[in-house]
Amino acid sequence: MKIVHTFITGLYSFKYDEQETNELERLFDDWNDFEFLEEFFDNHKNDLKYFGLTVESAIEETINEANLLDKLLLDIAESNFQTLDAIFKPLNNLEFRAVILSKQKARRRWLRLYAIKIEPNYYVITGGAIKLTHTMQEREHTKNELLKLEKCRQYLQSEGIFDLDSFNELDI
């Protein structure tokens, strides 16, 4: 695996050997890819019942949220005053949550980016997910993100790098 610059100061992303692109780029590709989204939501139709959504409406809301995330990343890159620490905030001892006051709120907010915090304002993205359940343990695809986190942490530790013992989640 390797670590790649993003276009945002202090924000980096892992790139896994089996993937063509780094995690941040791959996730944004997937979240804007109708083929990926249709397959994903069709496989998780039962979870959508909880939200009262069809596959079509879930995709529409996800695209809307992904569009807001695109704009958010551009805002962060252009911002002279906003730091990553202000965007990533702790939810509990396992997850950090980003709280952004924006003029346009997404109706649906289930896109997640996961990151390890190296130092204040230095984060490295380990992965992300469309989170349809309350906890990550409830579904295979989100459980897998926890495995990826641990793998990344072990890699960093093998290189003598220690994180701030926190797992961070970006949420708009």
Binding site: K2, I3, V4, H5, T6, F7, Y12, S13, K15, T21, N22, L24, E25, F28, D29, D70, L73, L74, A77, I118, E119, Y122, V124, L156, E159, G160, I161, F162
Partner: peptide, 21 residues
């Protein structure tokens, strides 16, 4: 710690900004 981390970062560029734009 941070210096070690930054030393690990590869030269590879991400195409994310161009895709977002």
């Amino acid at each position: 710690n941070l210096e070690k981390f930054l030393g690990l970062v590869s030269d590879e560029k991400s195409g994310l900004l161009e895709k977002i734009q």
